[in-house]
């Protein structure tokens, strides 16, 4: 089993409530990400964020990214408890919007100017990402000329150029072929492990692919009465600590029986979320 220990809290969702119109969407959402460390190597954090469609995952992301003000509650970043504000975290949105009036290169350029003031350094970084994402042949294309998966990779690259430590990804695996899912998974792990404080939160309906790279899982759901009718807004109903279970940071994860067991456990829980 991998050696690990938890250090500071680097992200905290503190009693977040969200009401839209007269609809309670989120109710008392609490969650935190702690810096998971492993002696002798740099380990970032990857949280898999699961839940049925329409439960409020995207809304929570918008709140965490400082784009949407919650009705009450707070989200804090870092050991200094900095409140969420736009730009504090990268967000790859569900429909991966891009600047349609700019080429792929233009889209990346504008995202990189804040973090890379030096033009040469910027170019190097952009081209390494273009190669990484197999986008080099499309650098002069407009977003309208790209496939869904290509657009998504540009959107991811754009956020990578701009963010410091945090990245929220809404459905990074949707619309990708299995090779690309593997590629994106590897890349997520690699980005996470570039810095001890790097934290990537992934919303996905692909439980297996998400659990395979995550160190923690959040399951969002609502309280229900005996007949299965929801009686509250959504919250993080269950969390899974994969480090504790010895199911994180492992290459061979899919072959481990306990992993399959856990996936089945999650599948069962889903019916009641």
């Amino acid at each position: 089993m991998a050696q690990y220990s938890y250090k500071d809290t680097i992200l905290k969702v503190d009693n977040v409530n969200l009401t839209l119109g007269d609809k309670v969407i989120l109710e008392n959402v609490n969650a935190e990400v702690r810096d998971a460390t492993r002696p002798g190597s740099v380990k970032g954090q990857i949280v898999g964020f699961l839940g049925p469609s329409g439960i409020g995952k995207t809304k929570l992301f918008e709140i965490m990214a400082g784009l949407l003000k919650p009705t009450s509650g707070n989200v804090y970043y870092g050991p200094d408890k900095e409140p969420a504000h736009p730009g504090c975290t990268g967000v790859v949105q569900q429909n991966y919007p891009l600047f349609m009036h700019r080429t792929v290169l233009g889209n990346l350029e504008i995202a990189a100017v804040k973090n890379y003031k030096n033009a040469d350094e910027r170019k190097t970084r952009i081209f390494s990402l273009l190669d990484r994402f197999k986008l080099r042949p499309y650098q002069d294309s407009y977003p309208a000329q790209l496939s869904g998966g290509q657009k998504q990779r540009v959107a991811i690259a754009q956020q990578l150029l701009c963010t410091d430590n945090f990245l929220l990804m809404d459905e990074p695996f949707s619309g990708l072929d299995i090779n690309m899912v593997e590629e994106v998974s590897e890349m997520i792990v690699e980005i996470a492990n570039m810095n001890e404080h790097n934290t990537i939160i992934i919303v996905s309906h692909d439980i297996v692919s998400t659990a395979a790279i995550a160190d923690n899982l959040w399951l969002m759901g609502r309280e229900k009465d005996k007949d299965g009718n929801p009686t509250s807004g959504s919250k993080i109903k269950y969390t899974f600590d994969l480090l504790e279970r010895g199911l994180a940071w492992r290459e061979d994860i899919r072959k481990i029986p306990e992993f399959t067991e856990m996936i089945n456990e999650i599948r069962d829980l889903f019916h009641n979320l």
């Binding site: 918008e62 990214a65 784009l67 736009p86 730009g87 975290t89 990268g90 967000v91 949105q93 429909n95 919007p97 891009l98 504008i110 995202a111 804040k114 754009q158 956020q159 701009c162």
Partner: peptide, 11 residues
């Protein structure tokens, strides 16, 4: 709205 969000997340 998401177009504005997109630009804002890029600081």
């Amino acid at each position: 709205k998401y177009e504005f969000y997109h630009a804002r997340t890029l600081r």
